[in-house]
């Protein structure tokens, strides 16, 4: 039950992040090839909820 609860909370958290992303929208970036590390893109999304 505890585990179930935990995964329920996790799922809720995930859906919150997803809806935050939808609410915050996106930024459309036009960079050189191989010039933006994926980890940095992911960090930006995690901090702002925005997608590329």
């Amino acid at each position: 039950m505890k585990n179930l609860l935990k995964s329920g909370v996790a799922a809720l958290a995930l859906s919150t992040v997803a809806s935050a992303a939808a609410a915050e929208g996106k930024v459309v970036v036009y960079p050189w090839f191989e010039y933006m590390p994926q980890e940095l893109v992911d960090k930006f999304t995690a901090e702002t909820g925005m997608r590329w």
Binding site: V27, V28, V29, Y30, P31, F33
Partner: peptide, 28 residues
């Protein structure tokens, strides 16, 4: 999947050829 370019001139040409209004930022 995002669009990228391999030279300043290629980026300029693509923006002039209708790319404006598609992107927010570029990296010239």
């Amino acid at each position: 999947m995002i669009d990228t370019y391999d030279s300043n001139e290629a980026m300029l040409a693509s923006l002039k050829a209708g790319g404006m209004g598609t992107y927010d930022v570029a990296v010239p």
